[in-house]
C-alpha cells in the first residue's frame, strides 16, 4: 500500500523524469566510453531509484558526501547540468579541471563532498563534517553513500564508531547492489546465493546496533520509498546517527573494465519487475501520477535530451595543459614552478 507522503505530485514527477534521464545518460555514457569518447566510466544501472530518492530528500542545509556511482543524486539535487556534464567529460569548464574521473564530483557550494576513488575513503571525512555541523549548531544532517563492498573496510567501521561515540547528525546510506565488482555481498559457493549467511551474519543494516544506533533495510528500487525513508532519517539524525541499507541489483558491470558474464548470471534485467525504472513506474501509476502516455513522452524527451547533451559535451575542449601544475598548494613550491618548462 502506498501511504500519503509529504511530497507533492509535481516533485514526484520531476523525480521520475530525472530517473529516466539518468537511465538514458548511463547507457549513452557507457557507449561513449566504448567508442573512446570517455577514457573510463562507472555504470549505475539499478541504482537510479536510490539516487533520485536521496536527491529528493536532501534539503539545502543537508550535506551529501557521495561515492563514485551517484550521478542521479546530484542531478536530482539540482546541480546545474553544465557543471555535471563538464565534470563527466573533463572539459575546460570542469570545476576540477579534468583532474578526477567521471562522476568524481566536488560541488562545495552545494554542500556536496569531493568523491574519492578508494572505497569508503570518504566516510571518516563525512563524520568529521557531521562533527563540524554539531559544533557550529548548524541546521541539517550529513548523508554519505557507499556500496556494500565498503562495509568490509576499516573506514566504514571507524566512521560508524565515531558517529556513535559523538552521536553525530549522520546518515550512513549503503547502496547494496549485491556485488563488490565480482565478489558477492554474501559468500557463495559456485555462484549460489548463501541465504544462511545472509540471514545470520550478513545483514549490513544490523551492524549499526553494535555502534549504538539504528539500522534499517529498505527497498532500493522504489524511489518514493527511498525518499520517504531518507527524509525521515535526515530529520531523525538530529538526535543521532542512522544506517540505511537499500537493496537493489547492479544491472551492469562495475566499471568499463569488467565483464559481468565472467562472474555471474544477471538476475535483474532491464524492463523486468525489479528494474528501478519499472518498479518506480508502477508506484507512480498506482498513485495516479503517471500513465502510459506520459511514460512514452518522457522517454522520447529524455532520449533526445541525453543524446544532445552528450554530443555537445564530448566535443568541448579539454583544460589547458599548463593548468596541471596549478593549485597543488595555495603557494606552489619552487620545484613546481621549475617543472612548468617540462610541459610542451
Amino acid at each position: 500500500m502506498i501511504e500519503k507522503t509529504d511530497i507533492g505530485k509535481e516533485e514526484l514527477l520531476t523525480g521520475y523524469r530525472n530517473l529516466v534521464m539518468e537511465r538514458f545518460m548511463d547507457k549513452k555514457l557507457l557507449n561513449a566510453s566504448k567508442q573512446g569518447f570517455l577514457p573510463f566510466y562507472i555504470p549505475l544501472m539499478g541504482h537510479e531509484a536510490i539516487h533520485i530518492g536521496i536527491g529528493l530528500a536532501l534539503r539545502d542545509n543537508d550535506y551529501f558526501y557521495p561515492y563514485y556511482r551517484d550521478f542521479g543524486t546530484v542531478l536530482q539535487k539540482g546541480i546545474p547540468l553544465d557543471m555535471i556534464m563538464s565534470q563527466v567529460f573533463s572539459t575546460q569548464d570542469d570545476n576540477e579541471l579534468g583532474r578526477d574521473m567521471p562522476d568524481h564530483f566536488s560541488f562545495k557550494k552545494y554542500n556536496i563532498g569531493a568523491v574519492i576513488t578508494p572505497v569508503a575513503g570518504h566516510l571518516t571525512s563525512a563524520t568529521g563534517i557531521a562533527y563540524a555541523y554539531q559544533y557550529r549548531k548548524k541546521e541539517g544532517s550529513i548523508i554519505a553513500t557507499f556500496g556494500d563492498g565498503a562495509t568490509s573496510t576499516p573506514d566504514f567501521h571507524v566512521a560508524m564508531n565515531f558517529a556513535g561515540v559523538y552521536n553525530l547528525p549522520m546518515v550512513f546510506f549503503c547502496e547494496n547492489n549485491g556485488f563488490a565488482i565480482s565478489v558477492p555481498t554474501y559468500p557463495t559457493e559456485n555462484g549460489a546465493f548463501d541465504q544462511t549467511y545472509e540471514e545470520t551474519r550478513g545483514q549490513i543494516y544490523k551492524k549499526a546496533e553494535a555502534y549504538g544506533f539504528n539500522g534499517i533495510r529498505i527497498d532500493g528500487t522504489n524511489f518514493v520509498e527511498v525518499y520517504r525513508q531518507t527524509r525521515k532519517a535526515l530529520e531523525n539524525a538530529k538526535n543521532g546517527p542512522i544506517l540505511i541499507e537499500a537493496m537493489t541489483y547492479r544491472m551492469g558491470p562495475h566499471s568499463t573494465a569488467d565483464d559481468p558474464n565472467k562472474y555471474r548470471t544477471n538476475t535483474v534485467t532491464e524492463g523486468s519487475e525489479k528494474d528501478p525504472v519499472i518498479a518506480s513506474q508502477k508506484v507512480l501509476k498506482d498513485m495516479g501520477i503517471l500513465d502510459d502516455k506520459a511514460i512514452e513522452s518522457i522517454n522520447d524527451e529524455m532520449d533526445k535530451k541525453s543524446t544532445d547533451l552528450i554530443n555537445k559535451y564530448e566535443k568541448e575542449p579539454k583544460p589547458d595543459k599548463h593548468t596541471i601544475l596549478d593549485n597543488l598548494y595555495e603557494e606552489n613550491p619552487w620545484y613546481i614552478d621549475e617543472e612548468k618548462g617540462d610541459i610542451q
Partner: peptide
C-alpha cells in the same frame, strides 16, 4: 579522517 572532515567544513 575526522580531522579532514572538520577542515572540509570550515
Amino acid at each position: 579522517g575526522f580531522g579532514i572532515g572538520m577542515a572540509m567544513e570550515g
